[in-house]
């Protein structure tokens, strides 16, 4: 099981339904969509793809394994952008 948490040097603001994440150590600016912002808020604490998918399905009243696959792909992208740390447990 892999857990993810956002890096402490990354800070985000919401603007017109999109989120802008500033990484103050890497000097990067990343924008994510509204559902991505919901996931980002959850990543204040350690999360697994499953726990985020559960919260997303509850918030957006949706079902299906596709949601979990979407979350895993999104987390992998955030990791490539160096915005989250992850641990394999």
């Amino acid at each position: 099981m892999t857990t993810y948490v956002r890096k402490s040097e990354a800070d985000a603001v919401e603007l017109d339904g999109e989120w802008i994440i500033l990484n103050m150590e890497q000097y990067t600016v990343t924008t994510i969509n509204e559902v991505g912002g919901f996931c980002w808020e959850l990543l204040r604490d350690k999360q697994t793809p499953e726990s985020i998918a559960q919260a997303v399905m509850k918030e957006y009243d949706t079902q299906g394994r596709a949601v979990e696959a979407d979350i895993e792909e999104f987390l992998a992208h955030l990791s490539r952008c160096e915005l989250v740390d992850y641990e394999r447990e």
Partner: peptide, 15 residues
């Protein structure tokens, strides 16, 4: 709200 897959829209390095 309607569900859209979470996405990274852009990623820029600033100098």
């Amino acid at each position: 709200k309607g569900y859209n897959a979470p996405h990274v829209l852009s990623h820029l390095a600033v100098q």
